[in-house]
Amino acid sequence: MSFVWTIAEQHDGKLRDVSFELLARGRKLADKLGTKLASVLIGDKVGEQAMEELIRRGADEVYSIQDPRLANFVCESYARVLTRVIKTYQPSIILAAATSSGRTLMPYLAIKVTAGLTADCTELDIEEGTGNLLQTRPAIGGNIMATIKTPDHRPQMATVRPKSSRPLPADASRSGKIIAVPVTDDMIDGRATVVGYRKDATDFVNVEEADIVVAGGKGLKKGDNFTMIRTLADSFGGVVGASREAVDRGWIGYPHQIGLSGKTISPKLYIGVGISGSIQHLAGIKTSEIIVSVNSDPDASLHKVADFGIVGDAFQVVPEIQRRMDRRNGGAK
């Protein structure tokens, strides 16, 4: 049986949302192929509950591979584990998230199992007749969409951009099988070791996995004015992004940078404030569902790609939006 697999992602034993987004993708492909969908969960002490959740979200089977030495993502060990299970079960398609770990693991693994790999897909489909996986990804800064297939190699592997698909609702009536795969010493590569983890107490965001991103640029004039952006992002339940100009001026940290030399995002809503919309910035936001632009220059490029643009002064427009949001969120916060 040639299954469709997704690689579930967990952190500290908790599943990340991308795991469910992948299952939504995989479900569609497995149904088209008339095959089963399995999710591979690598970690340590991830509870039964998490695996049941994967089943409710679309998996027919869950391969549970757990060991203290697999608690944190280490590319070489995860690749060894997967190489083993791929050889045993021979899946036809493997999807992983285009995250810091997925983007590391998959290219390492693709070499080990002699498979083709397409990065950062935003659309996946099955080709009529051949059953090949059609993998569509933005390329050249989002200026083109390339569709790629891997006709002669199995498994067919792809990373999928976070937030480019919506998880299926949890369906409690679904049932599936949980298969515990024993971990043997030869599956562990002890060379690289995780020695710690640093999380700046202040201000660390994951712009790639946010539903809503409010981004500020040079038009904000100074770093202090990012407070306004932060407050607005908060009231939308979103996070703060930035143009490179804003980051290079030290107004905000690099993890917030969006674009060619920063993060690529596909949120439901992106609001760019005082951002001109350079080709390099656009490269990071083109696959957003809704683009809103606030810029005093009517000719700003961001207005041209926006679904909704407001030609106006950020210092007037943003506080006005804020007032509306505060009202909606139940008075002043």
Partner: peptide, 17 residues
């Protein structure tokens, strides 16, 4: 197998404030 050029503009609305 295929290259598409997605449309650059979204035909969005721009309002003046």
């Amino acid at each position: 197998v295929k290259i598409d050029t997605p449309k650059v503009t979204r035909g969005g609305k721009v309002v003046r404030a």
